[in-house]
Amino acid sequence: MIPLLRAEWRKVTTVKLGWGMLLGAMALAALGVVAQIASNGASGNIALPLSAAATQKSIAASASSAYLFSVVVGIILITTEFRHFTSRPTFLIEPRRGRVIVAKLIIAALVGIIYGVICAALTAAIMAIWLGALGVTIGWIDNGVLLSMLSDLVVIATFAIVGIGVGVLVRNQIAAVISALVYLFVLEPLIEIIPVIQKAYPYLPGAAAGAITGASRGNLPHLDALQGGLVLLGWGLLFAVAGWMLMIRRDIP
């Protein structure tokens, strides 16, 4: 297993893919923090004052938006193998396909965690400087800000794993990335507002992620953080197992 993990890690670090995606994730996280702090107290903004625990947790949850990038990174890590046929030497050297896919899942989760740590650190830095300048104390522990950031990591890593599963299922890189983004940006919000099926909404991956980090949108009843966490991990497991099974059964291109 160690040789496979080293090989998969090298695949990540020897191409440029990572940097662009990471910058995107950082920009989105920073945007979330800045927007929430800047708009706080503006007319029409119903958010509680900056000193409130709920507000601080919500600002900290900005880092979790990196999951939009980590799911794409997961997809790219696996579909790149099919696209450029590096799947061939990979499975020639290790024909036990289950092991390869497990190594891939672990490395994808690790990349997700690294993204998460960097985005959380960026979020924390902006919060500390800006709120400090405004004279607002941050309850890192008391207000659950750190905990919120830790749960961001879980969300981001889980979405990287989901990305691997989606990539194995769809195989075509562009199609897989587009399906994932269309699902998250269009389909899931649609399900949220269609009366008959909206009951299922809280159990969907994006909504579960929102429940964990406290970044939940809308005013439907949603799951609490622990329930959301369990539901999201369930999705991660489902995609990991589906990817694993398909990888073992189907021919390698």
Partner: peptide
């Protein structure tokens, strides 16, 4: 066993050396 199936199994952005090192690690 060593095998090559058509000469297309490379990531275009990876150097030749890094390509080989990936598989050195795996093997």
């Amino acid at each position: 066993v060593g095998a090559v199936l058509e000469a297309t199994s490379f990531h275009p952005g990876r150097s030749a050396r890094n390509h080989l090192r990936v598989f050195c690690a795996a093997a």
